[in-house]
Nucleic acid binder design. Structure first.
Length: 631
DNA sequence: AAAAAAC
């Protein structure tokens, strides 16, 4: 009964789509519009949706929808696939997105689907895809070797990251276990030759991979890999795949696939976030006369989970972030230990650059030396060797308690079980990314909590970028509000972090500092970023002067930006600048040295910074449009 | 020098 009413709601939301006011980040919408102008007037597309949905309503009343995996054979799904799900994976009831898309996809329609994170989208596209492969070749329902070829791929699934492709590959493998359907994974950073040898030997019906490697394999005639009878194409994280940066590569891949006129092809597009014009963007991919737009998120609903409370932790400056993170980790590790009802502390910490991921994982790994309660520290980002990345993801997946420091490689789709905390340090690029990041917790009905830690100067941008989300201001952490410039001695957690940072290789912190600058080049108020990172270098890392950066980077920041120190400058010292006397009260704060000139603390820079803060002038990219968020 | 993604 419950299921039926949920479905009705969801079905109703499909009809309501035409009137749905869709919000998307300005930056993303501009980027997409620039990449692919929509030639059809939007109104006609919307009308088209309505009639399409209405037709579906009358043709297939939702009482007839199959909602249990065990009933899928009624729709022609092979018993072996069903057994893999009900006996192997032990799933019984389908989620809303599974019910609503599997039914349509099995009927042969293209599907564009949006559903919340962690609600089983992967299985929702795998079932119809694998069934379609078996329907084309009924003998594939039986396990047998020697039949599969490398040049007759029947379905391709494309994902935006390597780990996500691997994860989907594993799930597909489980589903195909009892059948003759062969799955291969094709991602960059792995040995192409080994993959080719395996694929030539075992064959491949279903290829899962990332765009670069798939394109590489298809475009290189010597690989022997081909898909002349391709029957299905899936874009997971479809909005990302259709975004600039990926779309061109997808179009390249299409060149090596048979045209839809020659070979009928089903296309499935899934994501937790879909811009209003996805269908326009995807028009090379989907069949405009035979597709279904499915939304299991109601039009007025926030696309995040009710059961994941979201908190924003405003910090006085960048220098407060790491100590506040340490405070949060210690508090919630202790909470989990003292309360048997809570899951062990398992967190993903998202940081804005690969260098900041490396530096913070180093610092927290160091902190663990003297703090046995600190969970295992792992890190993952694109600059690691692929084998290291894969190992980190696997280790985190299997850890009961751990902290994964991550770039946005893990933002989308990754299904790490029992993640209790998602902690974002600084702002994500856009609202959708925020939604995907927090979607790493609260999956499959589990609890979770989400924190975003930002500096006060980022608050206007946070309000601007994260409207309409149930984010509450959190003032629980004493390290967040400490004005370090007013302290006569380093507070304990600042001291611990500094001591750990002192042991870091100089280049690590130097690169992190520079990465913040690189990241800020497009920001509106770059001076704020410079002010903030200088305080971070000084008070979080305990440096005496800002790390020197290339003159070129300085000029990129603009001539009006002050407070940067040039590498190889004629009168400037280069090299390690971490002083020994940190922790000594005279080495930081207002009583610090007054060297004048470019000296880190004596040029009146701190006073300027404080004055600006007290004025409360809008900074750091905030557009000052009035309150759009309630924190 | 700024997520990600092929060699």
């Amino acid at each position: 009964m419950m299921k039926t009413s949920l479905l009705r709601q969801a079905a109703a939301s499909r009809v309501a789509f035409a009137a749905r006011p869709v919000r998307m980040p300005l930056r993303a919408s501009l980027a997409i519009r620039a990449a692919a102008p929509v030639h059809r007037p939007v109104t006609s597309l919307l009308r088209f949706y309505s009639s399409e949905s209405a037709a579906h309503e009358s043709a297939a009343p939702h009482q007839e929808l199959v909602t249990r995996f065990a009933d899928l054979p009624q729709l022609g799904v092979h018993e072996r696939i069903v057994n893999a799900i009900t006996k192997g994976m032990k799933y019984e009831n389908m989620t809303d997105v599974q019910t609503m898309t599997v039914n349509s996809a099995l009927a042969g329609k293209d599907v564009v689907a949006q559903a919340k994170t962690g609600t089983g989208k992967t299985l929702a596209f795998l079932v119809p895809i694998v069934q379609r492969i078996i329907a084309q070749d009924p003998e594939l329902a039986d396990r047998r070797r020697g039949k599969a070829r490398a040049d007759d791929i029947r379905a391709i699934i494309i994902s935006p990251t390597r780990e996500l492709a691997e994860q989907i590959g594993v799930e597909a493998q489980k589903l195909c276990q009892g059948t003759g359907v062969v799955v291969q994974t094709a991602v960059g950073g792995t040995q192409k030759h080994a993959m080719l040898r395996r694929t030539r030997f075992e064959g491949c019906h279903l290829m899962v991979g990332t765009p670069g490697r798939i394109h590489d394999l298809l475009s290189d005639p010597t690989t022997g890999i081909d898909a002349p009878r391709l029957g299905a194409l899936v874009l997971d994280e479809a909005d990302r795949m259709l975004d600039v940066g990926f779309k061109a590569e997808l179009e390249q891949i299409l060149k090596y696939l048979p045209s839809r006129e020659d070979v009928p092809r089903q296309t499935l597009l899934y994501s937790a976030t879909l811009p209003k014009n996805v269908v326009g963007l995807a028009r090379q991919f989907i069949d405009p006369r035979n597709f279904e737009f499915v939304q299991t998120i109601k039009s007025d609903e926030v696309p995040t989970h009710e059961r994941v409370p979201q908190f924003i932790v405003p910090c006085r400056g960048f220098e407060n972030l790491a100590p506040t993170l340490l405070e949060l980790i210690r508090r919630d590790v202790a909470k989990a230990k003292s309360n048997p009802d809570r899951l062990p502390f398992k967190a993903i910490v998202f940081l804005p650059t690969t260098a900041s991921v490396m530096a913070n994982s180093y610092i927290f790994r160091r902190l663990k030396y003297s703090d046995p309660t600190m969970p295992k520290i792992l890190d993952i980002h694109s600059k690691l060797a692929q084998a290291t990345r894969t190992r980190a993801a696997e280790e985190f997946r299997h850890s009961e308690s751990a902290i994964l420091f991550s770039s946005d490689v893990s933002a989308r789709g990754m299904d790490f079980p029992n993640v209790t905390h998602v902690i974002q340090v600084h702002l994500p690029q856009d609202r959708d990314l925020y939604i995907h990041r927090i979607g790493r917790t609260g999956r499959a009905g589990k609890q979770g909590e989400a924190y975003i830690m930002v500096s006060d100067v980022e608050i206007p941008a946070a309000r601007d970028r994260l409207p309409g989300l149930p984010i509450q201001r959190c003032t629980d952490f004493e390290n967040a509000s400490i004005d370090i410039t007013q302290e006569s001695e380093l507070p304990p957690l600042f001291k611990e972090v500094q001591d750990a940072a002192h042991k870091a290789p100089f280049e690590l912190l130097n690169d992190t500092y520079a990465s913040y600058l690189g990241n800020a080049i497009r920001d509106v108020d770059r001076q704020d970023v410079v002010d903030e990172i200088n305080n971070m270098a000084k008070y979080t890392w305990g440096m005496q002067e800002p790390p020197a950066v290339s003159p070129r980077l300085i000029s990129q920041m603009g001539r009006r930006v002050s407070g940067l120190r040039a590498l190889d400058g004629p009168s400037l010292r280069r090299g390690r600048t971490i002083g020994r006397e940190f922790g000594d009260r005279d080495s930081y704060g207002r009583g610090g040295s007054r060297g004048g000139g470019r000296n880190f603390s004596g040029d009146g820079f701190d006073q300027m910074e404080r004055a600006a803060r007290e004025e409360g002038r809008p900074r750091y990219g905030g557009r000052g449009r009035g309150p759009s968020a309630n924190f």
